[in-house]
Amino acid sequence: MKIMHCPLNGPRNISEFAYGGQVEVMPDPHQCSDKDWASYVFYEKNAIGVVKEWWQHSPSSYWFIAERHNASDDILRTYDPSELFSERVDFTTGENEP
């Protein structure tokens, strides 16, 4: 069984984790084009190398970031998202809000 190190819970079987997509800089949803937003939501660069990815430890619903080489599948490092993100994104001011 492949083992992944969860920053909160320690080493766990890989079956306890769910992949959540690559970590990318989010464009401003109120300013960017539909194409840019779709690219952010749906597309990945898919280049060989070390990628930053969102992973969730399912039993604790804990999201974290993993740096993984997508050719060798070696997981190089995992860490709490607070290393990259310092504040919560607020989506409540969209034009479709009541």
């Binding site: 069984m1 909160l8 819970n9 766990r12 079987n13 079956s15 306890e16 430890h57 399912s58 039993p59 604790s60 804990y62």
Partner: peptide, 24 residues
């Protein structure tokens, strides 16, 4: 899959993991 023996999992500790493939 988590080692729950007393040496690795003493009284006062908690593990969030799977039991029979169900979250526990």
């Amino acid at each position: 899959g988590v080692d729950l023996r007393i040496e690795a999992f003493p009284v006062g500790t908690v593990a969030q993991t799977q039991m029979a493939l169900a979250s526990v």
